[in-house]
Amino acid sequence: MTDFISKVIELFSTGKYMSSMWQGLLVTLEISVAASVIGLLLGTLAALAMISKKGGWMKIPKAVAKIYITVIRGTPMALQLFIMMFVIFAIRGFPEILTAILAFGINSGAYVAENIRAGILSVDIGQTEAGRALGLNSSTTMIRIVIPQAVKNVIPALGNELIALIKETSIVSMIGMYDLTMAAKVVGSGNNMASYVVPMSVAALFYLAMVYLLTFGIKKLEKRLRSGDRS
């Protein structure tokens, strides 16, 4: 045990190891943040297409959204990443971090879409009817009446999706990208550490810290939205 602790201290105090870990953490954060932005945008668009009444030209985006969500949710993330990396963006010089961001963003969007759709549908239909009966058109009713109420219902689910996304980015290490998980592996196999336990534990700590911070932030946000309701 003392040996373990002294090794941990050694890792934190050795510049070469720490800079490897930070570098990995940075890649994990980059992919997570950029992919969640893309996921949120894609997910919102897909959700709006899904809830549109069928008929007219909206039939096409609705069908596209349906296929998108079905395919993404029905296939493994690792496979999606491989396809993006080795088939779609197998272009020499195309930065692999961009490919990873796109792969995770597109994947996340499908889950976000389902969350947002459920959040919008959870708002009582009477709210929409009241807005329309006053003479507001459907998009104004959606923006001013339905979405503000849906946001509250969606925040916890979106938080969970973000947490899952951060952890899932670790599979980029399978294709040799230098993220936090890969950094732990590299540091562990280095001649001095001669052990995976210590760097892996430290990487786990980093993931835990990120997830904890996110959970904390979301709880705060939820509380604020809910207290606004009562005041």
């Binding site: 009241a130 003479g135 009446i145 309701d229």
Partner: peptide, 20 residues
């Protein structure tokens, strides 16, 4: 219809007040 509805007020059984 959106123009016509501006001239027709509606009151529902379950109020449908905007809670936010």
């Amino acid at each position: 219809i959106d123009v016509s509805r501006q001239k027709m007020g509606m009151v529902f059984q379950h109020f449908n007040i905007f809670p936010h």
